[in-house]
């Protein structure tokens, strides 16, 4: 005789969560069987450990770890863009992979999945943002800025600036200066 089984999935899942969390001893609240709120601040290593415990039960902590990693990728890129010496000597993909201890392919996929852009485009956007800040100081020539941001030439820099913002660096500079004057006059 074959008997069929009917499961109450949410209850089973919550039971698993409670068992695992009991072992770890963190203050938490179960929001639903797919979401828990951990009240304590936990370190990366601790979270990794927690994830391992859950994985044994077939449960994976997704969004949190993903978003932490995404944040680290972004921070690393921003840091890289702001360090002239590094920018010119390292390869972005290798730098990210070494620093974050993941294959670049993995980082690149996870990044695109969550942020609607690619690591390459994010890097370009950040470089252009940095260029805008440098332009706004009115202290550097475009050639100097191109050099600081590791572009092979001023033409290459101008082109990427124009492709990203729709404006040439000089149009941007002119508009920003006018905008400042206008704001002061108002």
């Amino acid at each position: 005789m074959i008997y069929f089984l009917k499961y109450d999935i949410p209850s089973i899942c919550k039971k698993i969560i409670r068992q695992q969390m009991k072992n770890i001893g963190l203050d938490y609240q179960i929001i639903s069987h797919t979401e828990i709120d951990i009240k304590d601040v936990i370190s990366d290593d601790h979270l990794k450990y927690l994830n391992n415990c859950f994985q044994d039960e077939g449960v994976e902590i997704i969004e949190t770890q993903k978003s932490i990693l995404i944040q680290k990728i972004k921070d690393t890129i921003i840091e890289l863009v702001n360090m002239e010496e590094k920018l010119s000597t390292v390869k972005t993909s290798e730098y990210l992979a070494n620093k974050l201890h993941h294959r670049y392919g993995y980082l690149s996929n996870i990044f695109s999945e969550v942020t609607y852009t690619t690591i390459e485009n994010f890097m370009i956007l950040q470089k252009i943002e940095r260029a805008k800040d440098l332009i706004n100081t009115n202290e550097y020539t475009f050639t100097e800025i191109a050099w600081k941001l590791n572009y092979s030439s001023m033409a290459h820099f101008s082109l990427q600036f124009k492709n990203t913002t729709g404006l040439t660096p000089s149009a941007f500079q002119r508009i920003m200066n006018k905008k400042r004057k206008f704001a002061i006059a108002a």
Binding site: E129, T165, L167
Partner: peptide, 8 residues
Amino acid sequence: NRDNFLLS
């Protein structure tokens, strides 16, 4: 920085 947000 939103002050720098110009796109044409």
